[in-house]
């Protein structure tokens, strides 16, 4: 089973993010960049499937040149090869452009399964997996909490708003996995050294059959999320339990 896993290098989520006031883009200069922690679940899912059923994992990324470090981390975890599409024309690309580029890069190699996270930890648009599936003309199975494969059919338990549902899908398809679908392995030190000799293709837009049209999506305004109201502290003067019961009833949880 040939598996393509989409990954992204993002500013370290442990450092406070900052938006550029004119472009409304996340400032990436001078901030440590890391492989999106959410992508590690997709890499682990791909590696586990390839180990159990044969085949290889290839990671595909779009981003600035330094994104090779994120790809190398995936290679150190066990991926067989990587593709980076880096092009100055792609700076600030919107979700649909991103999906077009990734789909074109994926199509260059054999694939039975495309794995992504549900959304990136920096941009959070959450539409790229479905867009890739549409562009590749294959189904999208999203928000996977667990995945199994019997050799021909994927069985996926999906997170829904109300709980979970289990669906089956044939290959090829796009699978987006949630954090917690598995416990991603650490790369090994041997893997880091071996990553040196694994194929890493660098592509630009010229190598892909992607035309950048007019801007599809533009961020017009950014507003801070409304502050959450602080909770109520119930002091126990003997009626505390009653008061808490009342609050729980108001909240309709009991």
């Amino acid at each position: 089973m040939d598996i393509a896993v989409c990954v992204k290098q993002i500013p370290d989520p442990n450092t406070p993010g900052e938006l550029d006031p004119t472009t409304h883009r996340l400032r990436r200069e001078g901030v440590d960049a890391v492989l999106d922690p959410g992508d590690e679940f997709g890499i682990e899912a791909g590696l586990a499937l390839a180990e159990a059923h044969g085949g290889e994992v290839r990671v595909v990324s779009m981003g600035p040149e330094r994104s090779v470090e994120a790809i190398r981390k995936a290679l150190a975890m066990g991926a067989a090869g990587g593709v980076l599409v880096a092009d100055p024309a792609l700076v600030g690309a919107d979700a649909l452009t991103t999906a077009r580029v990734l789909a074109a890069a994926i199509r260059r190699g054999p694939f039975d399964l495309v794995i992504t996270s549900t959304e990136s930890t920096d941009g959070y648009t959450g539409v790229v997996p479905q867009a890739i599936a549409e562009l590749l003309g294959i189904p999208a199975v999203t928000f996977a909490r667990s995945v199994s494969f019997d050799g021909s059919t994927l069985t996926v338990r999906r997170q829904t708003e109300n709980g979970t549902e289990t669906v089956e899908a044939g290959l090829p398809c796009v699978l987006s996995v949630t954090a917690g679908v598995n416990a991603p392995r650490y790369p090994s030190l041997r893997g880091i050294m071996a990553a040196r000799s694994k194929p890493l293709d660098r592509l630009s837009l010229n190598d892909l059959d992607v035309q950048l049209g007019e801007v599809d999506q533009e961020i017009v305004r950014v507003e801070p999320a409304p502050q959450r109201k602080g909770g109520e502290v119930v002091a126990d003067d003997g009626t505390g339990a009653q008061r808490i019961l009342e609050l729980l009833r108001q909240a309709k949880v009991i």
């Binding site: 190398r72 650490y186 790369p187 880091i192 990553a195 040196r196």
Partner: peptide, 10 residues
Amino acid sequence: TAEQRAVRDL
């Protein structure tokens, strides 16, 4: 080097 950074980060 890139590998030394990767070792340190890991």
